[in-house]
């Protein structure tokens, strides 16, 4: 029973690693670390029911220890990504890193819960009960933990850049001037290869969320990782930027992707997760709701 539950919990952890390719840097050592910790989590979860049945209530306290351990994981993951940040051409931003670290911590608790519930299944029915309980729990939890993506809160459009000013030195989208580029060569490059993206928030909640700089940086990072970005150290002129239209709350983004494929740029933006730390819900408050019209 215990071994079966541990196995199920670990498998659940593995599955959660797999379905989230983007937040995962994809290094084999990382897999090893998270699988092992997932197994430990599952082991602890599997122990709970037998301990209770033995009336060994003190043993439950080891769960507190587990919680302690898993919050360490968040620290480890955060530290790792923060160190990498300096080497990223387009940084993830602290908000994205916090989000990823938190997800990693949470998934260990999920592995623990899967193991715990499948022991109950094993106890109530035979081995098949355990498996059914375990798989169901994993599915339900995974669904409950599903994050929103940018597509849910905003309409994404790919647009052309405009160049304003005497020599066209100001790169703009609509009324928003985003960047002033002095060097002509860079300017021509922007004219030829630059792509603009407009995010139109669907409501006031979305507007407040997109205004968060962490959320915008996350979008830039995701687009840059998936479509590539023409950028190097010392070439600041091609830095992608995301700015806000203060009148409408639209977010405008400029970037020079390596693959200028509009359809997939749109997709990459849409699939960016809405960060937990950036999420704002002014409409849920009385003042915010009344003030919005």
């Amino acid at each position: 029973m215990i071994i079966g539950s541990i196995l199920l919990g670990t498998l659940a952890r593995l599955w959660m690693l797999k379905i989230d390719y983007r937040q995962y840097p994809g290094y084999p050592h990382g897999y090893a670390v998270h699988l092992t910790l997932g197994m430990i989590a599952a082991g602890l979860g599997a122990m709970v029911l037998p301990a209770l049945l033995e009336k060994d209530y003190v043993a439950i306290t080891f769960l507190a220890l587990a919680a302690q351990q898993f919050s360490n994981i968040r620290g480890v993951e955060r530290e790792f990504l923060n160190h990498l940040e300096e080497t990223e051409l387009v940084p993830r931003g602290t908000a994205y890193i916090e989000g990823i670290a938190k997800v990693f911590e949470t998934r260990n608790y999920l592995a623990l819960l899967v193991a715990l519930i499948s022991t109950i299944g094993f106890k109530l029915f035979e081995w098949y009960g355990g498996i059914i309980f375990g798989v169901l729990t994993a599915l339900i939890l995974q669904n409950a933990m599903r994050e929103k993506v940018v597509k849910d809160i905003a309409d994404v459009k790919v647009v052309d850049l405009e160049f304003k000013g005497d020599e066209g030195e100001n790169i703009a989208i609509g009324d928003v001037i985003i960047m002033n580029v002095g060097v002509k060569e860079s300017l021509e490059y922007w004219q030829k290869n630059g792509i603009g993206i407009v995010l139109d928030p669907k409501d006031d909640n979305a507007r407040a969320t997109l205004a968060n700089t962490g959320q915008r940086q996350a979008i830039l990072h995701d687009v840059a990782t998936q479509l590539g970005v023409r950028l190097d150290v010392g070439v600041q002129d091609y830095t992608p930027l995301a700015r806000l239209n203060l009148d409408t709350g639209r977010v405008v983004i400029i970037i020079i992707p390596i693959e200028p494929d509009e359809k997939w740029i749109k997709k990459a933006v849409e699939k960016t997760p809405v960060l937990e730390g950036s999420k704002r819900r002014p409409l849920a408050s009385e003042a915010g709701h009344a003030a919005a019209d």
């Binding site: 000013g165 005497d166 020599e167 030195e169 002033n180 580029v181 002095g182 060097v183 002129d237």
Partner: peptide, 8 residues
């Protein structure tokens, strides 16, 4: 590592 801006 800086950016050149054109003041117009």
């Amino acid at each position: 590592l800086s950016m050149a801006h054109n003041l117009g």
